[in-house]
Write a protein that binds this DNA or RNA. Structure first.
Length: 460
RNA sequence: GUGGUUGUAGCUCAGUUGGUUAGAGCGCCUGAUUGUGGUUCAGGAGGUCGUGGGUUCGAGACCCAUCUUCCACCCCA
């Protein structure tokens, strides 16, 4: 009795063609990360549930994948809660682990736990999957990869500049046109303070965030429905009315928050960044950018690819005290995330992937039988030692099948070695694309391919 | 979590107001061509119509449930 093969919703298999392209993206990102002084780490797929809860806001907590305890977990559950079908009350009894929701919170845990092993400021990059119990849709998956770079142990704004440049450089390398949006939580807090609603910053920013979607009137209606005072509703109109370039907008907002100390700090930080960032950076000050994650305290970023109808392809920001939750105070951190799967979709839609043919096998040795194939294997190994991608067809299948295999896998060359060839020491090399075929000695064959070795390997 | 949408051969899809034995194209396998792929020709295999119930003399089609796909909202990468 066989089971129909299937996958949990929102998860996918990755075929070789897809993986080569994903690795292409990842390789470029890693290259940039390393260049800026980041070193790789990994953390487990699962964390203790208590590590993750409460860091992502109410909505985020709901999307955390909880893992069942092992053993007879229901016997530890509270009978009344079970009878009442109160899921949240029994949760602690039945689950104490969860799949990671992002890479930032596990990183904060990692930093505190390994503080004696690492040097501060600590800069790491991390490329791993994360899981969210969300409904999948376009560009949204249950399991997806994040490529993060974070730095902890310094509150220097030089890091903000670095991260913006990393975004710029990475997307330039991948040829994806993007806009890097920037805002600052301190400024948002200042706005809230000036409007006398600092205790409701969350609701306010959520509404503000929708400005480009539902328009000023929509946002004002929402604020009204949520019970905000007229002052706040008017204030949002002033934010919507901001005009001009980044620094002009900043000057206008400065007026609004000048009575707020934290607001002024936000303005200062933004001004510093805007002043010192590379002039050709597609950076856009966006006062409506809020971001849902609770732990951000300073600069916040979001990267969008305007040519593609997709959510953001990256996001990040400054978090002043994420490690405090794990017992290490006064350690400011900042980091950014690249959404690998969305970058992939964007690049696919914009047709930005280079030809990956060069990644595959270059020569296939046809198998005419055990003796012949062992001979071919020796020759293949010699080529492999020259960094030529070579393989011997493992079975002595029909020639038609072996040729077909080479054809389908886009292998440019096939070598035929039968008893006749072994005797004469002359082997048939066939170029699949042109169909041309010529006989070569072993040395000629090795020479032929060593000339074809890509220059990146050739010189050093 | 809310709303909509989808599921028929390996893939993409047809299938009439419910009516005999469910079709096509592509792919796959075999042969023409026992050591030469892509083209062509001939033949062949492959489906309990997502799953479970129900209505009916009769269900791929209608009803209910459930899972899945894709999409929008919420939120996010």
């Amino acid at each position: 009795m066989s089971v129909k093969p299937s996958l949990p919703k929102g998860t996918r298999d990755m075929l070789p063609e897809t993986m080569l392209r994903r690795e292409y993206i990842i390789d470029h990102l890693k290259e940039v990360f390393k260049k800026y002084g980041f070193a790789p780490i990994e953390t487990p797929a699962m964390e203790n549930l208590s590590t993750l809860t409460g860091k992502y806001g109410e909505e985020g907590d709901r999307l955390i994948f909880k893992l069942l305890r092992s053993g007879d977990f229901l016997s530890h559950a509270d009978g009344k809660s079970l009878a009442d079908k109160d899921s949240s009350a029994v949760l602690g009894a039945i689950s104490n682990k969860a799949l990671r929701y992002d890479l930032t919170v596990p990183f904060a845990r990692f930093v505190v736990q390994n503080q004696n092993e690492i040097q501060f400021p600590f800069k790491r990059y991390q490329v791993q999957p994360v899981w969210r119990a969300d409904r999948p849709q376009k560009g949204r998956f249950t399991e997806f990869y994040q490529c993060d770079a974070d730095a902890v142990g310094s509150d220097s704004l030089l890091l903000e500049l670095d991260f913006i440049r990393i975004y710029k450089e990475a997307f330039q390398k991948l040829k994806v046109p993007v806009i890097i949006k920037i805002n600052n939580r301190k400024l948002l807090a200042g706005i809230a303070e000036s409007l006398g609603i600092n205790n409701r910053l969350g609701d306010f920013t959520i509404a503000l965030d929708k400005l480009d979607k539902i328009g000023l009137q929509g946002v004002q209606k929402e604020l009204k429905d949520r019970g905000f005072e007229a002052e706040a509703i008017e204030g949002i109109a002033r934010i919507a009315a901001l005009s001009g370039n980044n620094s002009e907008q900043l000057a206008q907002i400065e007026e609004l928050v000048k009575s707020s100390e934290i607001g002024n700090r936000g303005v200062e930080e933004l001004r510093f960044v805007l002043e010192h960032v590379d002039k050709d950076t597609p950076l856009q000050l966006d006062l409506t950018l809020a971001r849902g994650l609770d732990y951000y305290t300073g600069a916040i970023f979001e990267v969008v690819a305007p040519d593609v109808n997709l959510g953001s392809v990256g996001g990040g920001g400054r978090y002043d005290d994420l490690t405090a939750i794990f017992g290490m105070k006064g350690l400011s951190g900042i980091g950014i995330s690249f959404g690998l799967d969305r970058i992939y979709l964007a690049m696919e839609e914009l047709d930005l992937f280079p030809d990956m043919e060069a990644e595959g096998t270059e020569v296939l040795f046809v198998n005419f039988g055990l003796e012949e194939s062992l001979y071919a294997l020796k020759l293949a190994n010699e080529l492999r030692d020259l960094r030529v991608k070579a393989e011997v067809y493992p079975d002595s299948a029909k020639l038609k099948k072996q040729m077909d295999f080479a054809n389908r896998k886009n292998i440019p060359y096939v070598v035929l070695i039968g008893t006749h060839e072994i005797e004469k020491g002359s082997f048939a090399l066939k170029h699949m694309h042109s169909g041309e075929q010529s006989n070569m000695s072993r040395v000629e064959l090795l020479q032929h391919f060593s000339q074809n070795i890509p220059s990146e390997y050739g010189r050093h």
